[in-house]
């Protein structure tokens, strides 16, 4: 996990806190809406990144890695009736059952909560709209986190094989080290849940004070410092997804910090920056 991306995310969190807890009530509503939409965007981003085919609608799988982080595979010897003997090396990759439904639910709840917050008047109790994305993202994060159990030995490979119709297996090899299959994006989902929980907290304990907007340029300065950190850490400037995300986060927060006339515009940019930083961290 890159420290520079963490610093960038901390800058986003600071900017969001400024909007949520230290602005006028209407401004705080805008930031709550942006937080809910950011949570929904993070969920969508996790889905996009976790799906190896890069599009929606396919089962999400988790690749098994050992304690050193190396991918784990097994060599299968297959012999079908009347067919040739085949030797195949297959990576241990496990489908995450039900993950797509959890992400669908989290995405819809985030969008619904954000839409309700953009209204100037509450629909139902004050906590209802921010509670929706918090519940959705929290449930998805817990589900993903629970998937990372440790497996090992012959029993682990047999449990993996039991998911497929592989009656023709004659033998298989067993990886030397224990392994675990953690779906990608668990960290990002945790960030989405935390952001939504902050928005919920700001609805429950409103503390309107002027001057919170100053936290946004400070957050932008942290995001710019994260870019410097990254360039020094890398020793150059290759343009990769992480670099693209860090530069964009720094730019978005700075524009939000320079924005004075509209909480709607500033909060939308903070939400977009937060979603980018979280997906870059968890991807």
């Amino acid at each position: 996990m890159s420290g520079a991306v963490l610093l960038s995310l901390a800058g986003c969190a600071l900017a969001l806190l400024g909007g949520l807890f230290a602005s006028s009530p209407l401004s705080a509503r805008r930031y709550r809406a942006a937080a809910a939409l950011a949570a929904a965007l993070i969920v969508g981003g996790v889905w996009w990144v976790a799906d190896p085919r890069g599009d929606f609608g396919h089962p999400i799988t988790a690749e098994a890695v050992d304690a050193n982080g190396a991918p784990v595979s097994t060599v299968l010897v297959l012999q079908r009736d009347g067919g040739r003997r085949q030797v195949r090396r297959l990576p241990l990759r496990r489908p995450v059952d039900g993950a797509e439904y959890a992400l669908w639910a989290a995405l819809l709840l985030g969008l619904l909560g954000g839409g309700l917050q953009y209204r100037t008047r509450d629909v139902g109790p004050r906590w209802l709209a921010p509670a929706l994305p918090a519940a959705g993202a929290g449930a998805a994060a817990v589900m993903f986190a629970r998937m990372g159990g440790l497996e090992s030995g012959e029993a682990g490979v047999r449990a993996w094989l039991a998911r497929f119709e592989v009656g023709a297996v004659q033998s298989f090899t067993v990886p030397d080290l224990p392994w675990s299959a953690q779906p990608e994006g668990t960290v990002a989902l945790g960030v989405a849940a935390a952001v939504a929980a902050l928005a919920l907290a700001s609805a429950l304990w409103t503390t309107p004070r002027s001057g919170g907007e100053r936290l946004i340029p400070i957050g932008a300065a942290l995001a710019a410092a994260a870019v410097i950190w990254r360039m020094i850490e890398v020793g150059g400037l290759p343009w990769r997804p992480a670099e693209g995300a860090l530069w964009a986060v720094a730019g978005l927060l700075a524009v939000a910090g320079l924005e004075r006339s509209s909480a709607l515009r500033a909060s939308t940019l903070v939400g977009a920056a937060l979603a980018l930083a979280a997906v870059a961290l968890g991807a």
Partner: peptide, 18 residues
């Protein structure tokens, strides 16, 4: 600046998956 910022964010998101 708002529209340009969101445009840049969309570009970065494209970079995240390409």
């Amino acid at each position: 600046p708002w529209a340009l910022g969101l445009w840049v964010a969309a570009g970065a998101a494209l970079g995240l998956v390409s």
